[in-house]
Design a protein around this nucleic acid. Structure first.
Length: 254
DNA sequence: ATGACTCCCAGTGGGAGA
């Protein structure tokens, strides 16, 4: 079973690239972030023609998530139950016996901002909800754009980013809190190239200089850990014309 | 260096992203 996550930064713009990528990477399920589409504009027909059943949850201009699967997903949940949220950030479903949760974590903007406080509240709510999800679905994958670089080796310039957004002790404590639920960072289960990033700024020739962050993650539950045979970041789509600023992350389960 | 780019909605600029 192959699963993937990709922040597409506008599905309206990136749909052709997504279809190309899925043709080359026929995953069983993929979660998307930053679709930036209201629900009536979601391109479900084009995705169905490519062999994917879609579940989606969007809004105007910002955020928006989707879950695309080869076989229909069940028990769909949109956003974190009980956490009142105007922003479309979470979609979950059960696919072939695996609970797949796709999430677009808040950016947080700056540690002293209201948006950071929202990020902290959102992360706390996610943690509590995941505890109940794990109790019901031992085989669980949480993947998406976390907007957290868990360690300094996930940052191209740890000195410049010291305690800056994505790298604050508070954000990293929340990431550790997810691990303490029995989740494992699939990417770090394997030897990886140094300077592995999943996002590169559009500015400053950052991709060409390989100046980026690893902020897109796939966490797997204890019950699934033994089945993980590979986890990679696919940099290829970042070389497209008009690329997303994020690359897809892929996991293979045996 | 409060920069740079891209996307969106708007509307001939500005907010957000990370």
């Amino acid at each position: 079973m192959r699963l993937a996550t990709w922040n597409v930064n506008s599905l309206a713009v990136r749909l052709p690239q997504l279809l190309d990528w899925l043709a080359a990477n026929p995953v069983d399920a993929i979660v998307l972030q930053e679709t930036k589409l209201t629900d009536e504009k979601f391109p479900h027909s084009e995705l169905a023609a490519a062999g994917y059943v879609a579940q989606w949850f969007g809004q105007k201009t910002y955020n928006g998530v989707a879950l695309l699967t080869r076989s229909a997903a069940t028990d769909i949940v949109r956003n974190i139950p009980g956490f009142g949220d105007e922003q479309a950030r979470v979609i979950a479903g059960t696919v072939d016996g695996v609970r797949v949760i796709g999430a677009y974590f808040p950016n947080g903007q700056a540690p002293d901002s209201d948006k950071f406080q929202y990020k902290m509240r959102w992360l706390a709510a996610l943690h509590d909800w995941l505890a109940t999800e794990l109790a019901q679905h031992p085989k669980l994958v949480l993947m998406g754009d976390y907007n957290i670089a868990p360690e300094d080796r996930d940052v191209y310039d740890p000195v410049a980013f010291f305690e800056q957004i994505h790298c604050t002790p508070q954000e990293r404590a929340h990431f550790a809190g997810l691990l303490s639920l029995g989740l494992h960072d699939a990417f770090r289960m394997f030897e990886q190239p140094p300077k592995s990033w999943s996002w590169w700024d559009y500015r400053n020739l950052a991709f060409r200089r390989n100046q980026g962050l690893r902020i897109d993650h796939i966490l797997v539950s204890e019950a699934l850990k033994g089945q993980v045979s590979a986890c990679v970041i696919d940099k290829l789509p970042r070389k497209n014309e008009r690329p997303s600023d994020h690359a897809p992350v892929l996991i293979t389960l045996t």
